[in-house]
Design a protein around this nucleic acid. Structure first.
Length: 768
RNA sequence: GGGCGGUUAGCUCAGCUGGUUAGAGCGCUACGUUGACAUCGUAGAGGUCACUGGUUCGAGUCCAGUACCGCCCACCA
């Protein structure tokens, strides 16, 4: 171990030196920053002086391998198949025997009593008598205790105060001695008589054998019970009596409970409030001393001369505070790492000094962490924060789920299923990993992590990069107007083309939506909203539509202005999700201030409903034309003519004529916009899009059956809508009770579907 | 023993206060390199929202119960 430690220490020393840190190896404490170490001593001393930290001989959880005490939270219970042994303890007066049951026969060597329920009639006359402990022959009393369940087994229980928390309590109440029969290394000690020196497991088998031989074993039956294991090494935990340092939790828990009850602290998702409260309300005193070689050392000194025990906030005491003797020794134990971690919210800010940092940053607003450390860390930060600063360290606790591997297994180093973030980020980028993690699941829900998800996010970053590249190209030759902050100004409303007005409308809606989602801690939904807007709207539609005016003989200056405006605002929105890419790209664009990371959150703005609807009409027409082209097997590269009767959408078709040509790959010269009622066209495929009827003359290559099938299918869909809407509107209850906008929605839907059906039927008739 | 979560497309998951025909990515099918991007584009297939009952004009969404999966807490001798 020492060899290993030296190698390990040398390695860490090297790393720390390169960071400019110093280490004090004489005290086996790494000291990265003396501030927190000092804060830990101050905190300990404060609690000690207040009587909230005490040293006591108690039954604690002990790991025989790590050779240290553990807190309740470091013990993991697992169900294990074992046996329930029934033992017979003869009465000392020879008048009979009492039977007890146990899953730990070896602990009978430490039995100092037998307990029954005070109301158990079967044992009334036995209470106060003594039994002879088999093997050792010790005389031990029969006592009563409320905790004993008369229904379980024989209703009598052997009491081993030194090796069972329940028995410890029974023993304390009944004044039974505690006889420790095990050593701290997991072997039996001299009190175990003939079994001294044996390992616990070995002793168990031998005790059973011996009891059987002595006729004291009455029965054995298979039994499943929960066994505590060391969280760190997996060894079976032994309850042992030992002198340890504890925090008295009751006084600290009270205000921490109130803080969550009265809403000072809010958990997201809310259900974890109950989890927190349940733990806090039932919390046991906290064992904080550890017999480990790393950690903050307990700042307690013992005087050899006068026996004084004193806590200090100094790094070292040179003389006893009471008698002045120099013969003093520091407690060799260190603190539970969560004790110092619990002080984190203020020890990192210079506490106990009243520093400007502490003033400014305590309390914080939100803590973001995993739900698996609510007790270990969150709860402790809360009650320690309240104790030392008078108020909780944060208001909102946002909890994410556990990150699992692709098959749902919890990641662990021993299983080897951990995705190493340094490898992932090297391959896909930090932003990709971050975005993948944020959007993978909702608050408090576990997520299965695989590289597929990171690839998706990486592709998104790539998409954004390329969209910006395109935009920069467009902006390069243009003069971008800026607003007073220095950001690209909102394009002049009067000069806006329909496509510009549409994307600006969608941007402003997205700003409002993402802001709302972030305020509600729906981070994953906010991320998805941005993904949708950037990829499916800005890239797929706006950029494609913008190319027409950008590559025209006289480029429209509204395009670069719109690109600059939309992209700059969008990058601000996306920055929390992908900080590095967005910062880099933002720096290339006209922007206000020094850096995106300190830029203001964008504000929403004007929406242009009419233009947005116009553009959406064109989007639908484009989709339908593309669909018909695919259906008719028209090669992508081939430009085809079109005859359009726009109906009510004539404005949109007029102003977006070039965009329609470009996006649907039409033959520009062959596009005719006509007024009036749509007339059947020879050798054409027909489409009904909104109020528009579109004919694609495809002489000689029409698949009439496919065209007819499509129109028939669409008529059926329209009829479905008509039936549904009619059904709803015929329902008096619905019309009377549903909100007006919902009812109106169905009315306009019915009207649109009716018109659509008529137009479709006309086109079907054309086909003969 | 107590408490909590999940069950939606082949896979991984969204679906916020109940309101058009339930969405995304991956995968799948067919086409495709047009001057941001093949880490891409276009079109398409794919779901009785676990089950049963209830509330409601209306339920993936609210309530009750059932089944299965998972998690947390607990002094199960």
């Amino acid at each position: 171990i020492w060899d290993w430690m030296e190698t390990y220490q040398e390695r860490i020393k090297g790393q720390l030196r390169s960071l400019g840190a110093s280490c004090d190896w004489s005290r086996y404490v790494f000291t990265m920053d003396p501030g927190p170490a000092h804060a830990v001593r101050v905190a300990f001393k404060h609690l000690y002086d207040k009587g909230l930290i005490y040293r006591g001989e108690r039954i604690i959880s002990w790991c025989p391998r790590c050779m240290t005490a553990l807190s309740d939270l470091e013990v993991v219970h697992e169900d294990e198949q074992s046996f329930l042994w029934r033992l017979r303890y003869p009465l000392a007066d020879g008048t009979g025997a009492i039977e007890v049951e146990t899953t730990r026969p070896e602990t009978m060597l430490g039995d100092t009593g037998v307990a029954v329920h005070p109301d158990d009639a079967r044992y009334k006359q036995l209470v106060g008598k003594e039994v002879i402990l088999p093997i050792l022959g010790r005389r031990i009393p029969i006592v009563t205790d409320e905790i004993v369940d008369p229904e379980f087994g024989s209703g009598a229980v052997k009491v081993t105060p030194a090796h069972d928390p329940n028995d410890f309590e029974i023993g304390r109440r009944a004044n039974l001695p505690a006889i420790t029969v095990m050593n701290f290394d997991g072997t039996m000690n001299a009190e175990a008589g003939p079994f001294a020196g044996q390992a616990i497991e070995e002793a168990r088998a031998n005790v059973v054998k011996r009891l059987e031989a002595d006729g004291a074993l009455v029965g054995t039956e298979p039994y499943t019970h929960s066994v505590g294991h060391c969280d760190r090494c997996g060894s079976v935990i032994e309850p042992m009596i030992s002198k340890q340092w504890f925090v008295n939790m009751q006084p600290l828990a009270k205000p921490a409970i109130e803080a969550a009850r009265d809403g000072c602290i809010r958990f997201i998702p809310e259900r974890f409030t109950g989890v927190y409260l349940n733990w806090m309300e039932n919390v046991h005193d906290w064992c904080i001393s550890r017999q480990l070689w790393w950690g903050h050392r307990i700042p307690i000194w013992y005087c050899d001369a006068c026996g004084e025990v004193s806590a200090t906030d100094q790094e070292a005491l040179t003389a006893c505070a009471a008698c002045g003797s120099a013969e003093i020794l520091q407690d060799p134990d260190v603190l539970d790492t969560w004790f110092s971690s619990g002080l984190w919210t203020f020890s990192t800010l210079g506490w106990p000094e009243k520093t400007p940092d502490l003033e400014r940053f305590y309390p914080g607003h939100v803590l973001e962490t995993g739900y698996d450390i609510i007790f270990l860390w969150v709860a402790r930060m809360i009650f320690l924060g309240i104790e030392f600063l008078g108020e909780p360290p944060f208001k909102d606790v946002y909890l994410h789920g556990t990150v699992r591997d692709a098959s749902g297994q919890r990641m662990s180093k021993t299983k080897g299923n951990v995705l190493d973030p340094t490898i992932i980020t090297a391959e896909y980028g930090t932003d990709a990993l971050r975005f993948a993690l944020i959007t993978a699941s909702g608050p408090g829900n576990d997520l299965k992590m695989s590289t597929d998800r990171v690839v998706e996010a990486r592709n998104f970053a790539n998409k954004l990069f390329n969209a910006t590249k395109f935009s920069l190209n467009a902006i390069a030759g243009a003069e971008i107007r800026r607003d007073e902050s220095g950001a690209a100004a909102m394009p002049d409303g009067a000069a806006l083309a329909v496509a510009d007005a549409w994307v600006i409308t969608r941007l402003h809606e997205t700003i409002a939506e993402v802001t709302r989602q972030l305020d509600a801690y729906q981070l994953h939904e906010a991320g998805r909203s941005l993904y949708e807007f950037i990829w499916s709207e800005f890239c797929d539609w706006y950029i494609e539509a913008a190319k027409v005016r950008l590559y025209a003989d006289e480029p429209d200056p509204a395009v670069p202005q719109t690109l600059a405006y939309v992209l700059e605002r969008t990058l601000r929105l996306l920055h929390p999700f992908m900080p590095f890419v967005t910062e880099e790209l933002w720096q290339q664009l006209p922007h206000p201030g020094e850096a995106l990371i300190v830029a203001a959150w964008p504000e929403t703005g004007e929406t242009f409903t009419a233009q947005a609807e116009g553009f959406q009409a064109i989007m639908e027409a484009v989709r339908l034309i593309r669909n018909a082209r695919a259906e008719q097997g028209v090669e992508t590269a081939r430009r085809i003519p079109a005859i359009v009767y726009p109906g009510a959408s004539s404005d949109a078709y007029g102003s977006l004529r070039s965009e329609l040509v470009s996006l649907a790959r039409l033959d520009g010269d062959g596009l005719e916009l006509r007024d009036g009622e749509p007339q059947a066209q020879e050798e054409s495929v027909s489409i009904v899009s909104g109020s528009a009827s579109i004919f694609l003359p495809l002489a000689g290559m029409i698949d009439v059956d496919a065209a007819r099938a499509r129109i028939t299918r669409e008529i059926e869909l329209a009829e479905g809508e008509i039936d549904r809407a009619n059904g709803m509107l015929a329902n008096e209850q619905f019309v009377a009770r549903a909100p007006a906008n919902v009812v109106d929605g169905h009315r306009s839907k019915l009207a649109a579907a009716t018109d659509r059906k008529a137009l479709l039927q006309a086109r079907l008739a054309d086909l003969g």
